[in-house]
Each structure stands twice: as structure tokens, then as C-alpha cells.
Computed example of a mutant assay.
Amino acid sequence: MSNTGKKGKPRKGTGGHGRKALEGRGPTPRAEDRHWAKDRRRRAAAEAKERAKARPQRRRPAMPDGAELVTGRNAAVEALRAQIPATTVYVAQHIEVDDRIREIVQLAAKRNIPMLEITRPELDRMVPFDTIHQGVAIKVPAYEYADPVTLLQDAISRAQVPLFVALDGVTDPRNLGAIVRSTAAFGGQGVIVPQRRSAGMTAAAWRTSAGAAARLPVALAGNLNNTIADFKRAGVFVIGLDGGGDVQLPELDLATSPLLIVVGSEGKGLSRLTAELCDAIVSIPIDSATESLNAGIATSVALYEVSRLRAAAE
């Protein structure tokens, strides 16, 4: 081929400068040899992780009255079935209606809970940023806690043998809900939670209580150890549940007496100061292959045994 351009005019050559480009880059390296690609991906993943850590966390704007929102169709149905004290049901406009939405509408109407239809962007702004609301949310007011000493005095005035449960470091609201349910089932008069480092009566606790929270009061103790001391001065015996207790639950002599059962956290158990205030540390005999019971189950077992021993003594 001649080195000519249009109309046969001579065309200037490249002097061989483009020859290397025409030769290509050679054969593609094997995957195990392409270490730079792995390093690049590894660096990119590490950088993305660091950016995620540095990114400011987006939180749900706090509701001015301390209320809480239960979001999602399943959660909303469960909350209304559990008699959670909802004050408003929010439903997004033009949502697809299924059996859950129909039941939400029926339960809300039965309890005369106001229902508001709002736009989806409005609902998006109300709920947590990382929450999928499925077009429905329920507003739950802040829980009104009772006073522990007042609950004790009320039980005594009604000629009841006091039976209370106090939580020491239990932070899972589902455990709290389960304990409320068990306390109500076995004749207790209330559950006591400390103001700090403890689960509170959130929507999750309400749902787990399966309606018992509507019947059994939960009291708030500013200082749990001071409250325990108040109960002891009023003639109430205090027992702590712990796997290493020196008294086996079936051998508990204090079951028929006025009683406060203190439950520690699943990981750390009872705190040292709280354990020192207890009249007895009680353990539940379990199979050696099982390390421990969680707070909710341990409390249920203890309450059942106390209830059984009291019934046998009558």
C-alpha cells in the first residue's frame, strides 16, 4: 500500500511511533497474578468503611411529647392486638390495602383511636430514617410509671401478700415485656425498673407483654438499692436470682412471705451492692449442659414456683 493521501498526494508518516500501540499489551494475566486488582478492591472497601464511620448518623427527630412510633404493618397489628395505648394511627394515602390494613382499621375503630390519612412524604419524615413503614405508623404516648412504694402500700392495704419483681441491669425491652406478662399471670402486683441502665416500657415491651402491661403497673425507681431498702423496712423479703445462688428455688422458705424478686442481667447477673441487700440468693436447678436462662424465662420459673408454694401453703 502506498503512503498517499487523498488525490494521490504524499502523506507524512509517523516514523514508527505508532508501531508499539499496534502490538497490544500482550496476553491477559491470570487471575491469581492480578494482585493489583485485589489490592484496589481491598483499599476501596476499607475507604468506604471509613467514610461510613465518619458520616454523621441520621436519627429520627424526637417527638416533642416523648411519644414513640410503631411502624410496619405486622408490628402495627401486633401492637393493637396487645392493647398498646395508641393515640393515633397514621396511614399513607393510596396504599395497597391488604388483610393487615383492614384489621388495623377495624381494631382502631373498635377502640376509638383516631386515624389520620397523610401523604407518604409526610410519613417518611415522621419515622426513623432507616425504617420501612409500609404506609402505616402508630403513635404511642410516653409510658406513665408508677411509684414503687405506693404500689407496695396499695397491695398491703388490699390485704394482699406482696409479690413484686425488680430488674437489675436488664436492658432488653422484650425481656421486660415477658417479665410483666409473667408477673401478671402469677399474681404479682407490679414490676420495678431502675431509672438508669434498664429497659423501659417501650412499644417493644408492650407488644411482648401481650396486653398484660395494660393491667399490671410498672414502677420507676430513681435508685434501685434505695427502693429495695424501703421494701425491706416495710417487711418485704428480698431474693435475688443468680445461677450461683446458695438456695435452690424448690427449697425456698420465703415463698409465702411478702416478697421482692430481683433479676439480674443475663451477662453480668446481679450487681454487687444489690446482691448484698438480698436476704437470699436463689438459683434455679437446670441441666449442666445449659449455661443459663435468660432474664424473662428465669423470672417466669421463679414466679411459678412461688405461686405453687403459696397455693400449697393455703
Rank of each mutant, 00 (worst) to 15 (best):
M1Y: 08
S2W: 12
T4G: 11
K9T: 07
K9A: 15
K9E: 05
R11V: 14
G16L: 03
K20V: 12
G24A: 13
G26F: 06
T28G: 07
E32W: 14
R34S: 08
R34G: 04
H35Q: 08
A37H: 05
K38W: 11
A44R: 14
A45R: 08
K49M: 07
K49N: 03
R51K: 13
A52S: 02
A52Y: 09
A54Q: 03
R55S: 04
P64E: 04
G66C: 03
E68Q: 09
V70H: 07
V70G: 01
N74V: 07
N74K: 02
V77R: 00
A79L: 04
P85W: 04
P85Q: 01
A86R: 10
T88F: 10
Y90Q: 01
A92I: 08
A92N: 01
A92V: 03
D98P: 02
D99H: 03
D99R: 06
R100Q: 15
R102P: 02
R102V: 15
V105E: 15
Q106N: 01
A109M: 10
K110C: 10
K110Q: 03
R111H: 07
R111D: 06
M115W: 08
L116P: 02
T119W: 09
P121Y: 09
D124A: 14
P128D: 08
D130N: 10
D130F: 13
H133M: 13
Q134Y: 07
V136D: 13
A137D: 10
A137M: 00
I138N: 05
A142N: 12
Y145T: 00
Y145V: 01
A146Q: 15
A146S: 15
L151Q: 14
L151Y: 13
L152D: 04
L152Y: 14
Q153T: 10
A155F: 12
I156E: 09
I156N: 11
A159R: 15
P162E: 00
P162C: 05
D168T: 02
D168A: 09
D172Y: 13
D172V: 13
D172I: 15
N175L: 06
G177A: 12
G177K: 00
A184F: 10
F186P: 12
G187M: 15
G188W: 13
G190W: 01
V191Y: 11
R197W: 05
R197S: 03
R197K: 07
S198I: 00
A199H: 10
T202P: 14
A205E: 00
A205P: 07
W206T: 08
R207W: 09
S209Q: 02
A213G: 15
G222K: 01
T227A: 06
F231E: 07
F231V: 14
R233F: 12
I239F: 10
G240L: 05
L241T: 08
G244S: 14
P250K: 12
D253L: 12
A255K: 06
S257H: 04
S257R: 15
P258T: 01
L259E: 09
L259G: 11
I261N: 09
I261Q: 06
V262L: 02
G264Q: 06
G267S: 01
G267I: 02
G269C: 00
G269F: 04
L270I: 12
L273M: 05
A275L: 02
L277H: 02
A280E: 09
V282W: 01
S288G: 07
T290N: 04
S292A: 08
I297N: 06
I297V: 06
T299G: 04
V301R: 09
A302Q: 14
L303T: 11
L303V: 13
V306C: 14
A311W: 05
A312F: 11
E314P: 13
